[in-house]
Simulated scan of single mutants.
Amino acid sequence: MTRKLGGGSLVIATHNAGKLKEIGALLDPYGVKCLSAGSLGLPEPAETGKSFAENALIKARAAAEASGLAALADDSGLSVDALDGRPGVYTADWAERQWFEGNPGRDWYMAMGKVEGMLQQIGPDADRSAAFHCVLALAWPDGEYAVYEGKCAGSLTWPPRGTLGFGYDPVFIPAGHDETFAEIGPEAKHAISHRADAFAKLVADQFGG
């Protein structure tokens, strides 16, 4: 049986204030106080895994071992059927600018264009099925862990549509909808997203709700 979190402090293995706020709001009703790895001065481990689950566990275990507290990490990305699951764990890397492309940072339009270009190379009948994945990993300092996997299936469109999302949202149409993630708005997106799916599984397992 999976160990239960209960109340108390939980380290969120991120240096992103926005992600800490989002996860903290989801766990606040269960009496969990969230601290970020960044606020504790914990280093960011190299994400060397070959799957979302491996990378999430790398981050969660590193934060748990360094802090002595339970830790939660997530890893997420887009998989495209016709591209053999790519970009997958390299979802963010596909948006990284090279040294000759300007200032450091991520260019998501470039990343979306890369996916579209590869589909165009396959031809007009290319399978546009895709899915967003999110894996949440809980780890305790003694090595025990739990993993929760969420998924939102859909298809890709071009050109990008909408301004409400981020990443690949403007080209992803969730199954059963006509609008992209970037058109339906954050509240509607949260109800059906891969992250919502993973969190629902975590909450059901950890808090029985």
Score class of each variant (00 low, 15 high):
A70V: 10
D205Y: 05
P186H: 07
L136A: 06
L156Y: 02
T91P: 12
V32Q: 04
D74V: 03
L156H: 01
W108M: 15
P29R: 08
K189F: 07
P104L: 10
D169W: 00
S9A: 15
L78R: 00
G185N: 05
D75I: 10
G6R: 13
E149N: 09
G162K: 00
G49Y: 10
E65V: 13
L119R: 06
Y145H: 15
W140K: 01
A126F: 09
L83E: 07
L27N: 05
A70G: 07
A200D: 14
A131H: 14
L40P: 05
D93T: 03
S155C: 13
P43V: 01
E116H: 15
E96W: 05
R61F: 03
C134M: 15
M118G: 02
S76H: 05
E22R: 11
A196M: 10
N55D: 06
G41T: 07
Q120G: 04
S79G: 07
N103Q: 10
G49H: 03
A13W: 07
L202G: 11
A111V: 01
G143L: 14
G117R: 01
H177K: 06
F181R: 00
V32Y: 02
A53W: 00
A82W: 09
G165N: 06
P104N: 07
D74C: 07
A73Y: 03
V89D: 01
S51D: 04
G143Q: 05
C134V: 09
I184V: 11
Y30I: 12
E101A: 12
S36L: 08
A25H: 06
Y90H: 15
P159I: 09
D93F: 13
G24P: 11
D169K: 00
L27V: 06
R86Y: 08
T91C: 14
G88H: 13
A53K: 02
P104H: 13
P174N: 01
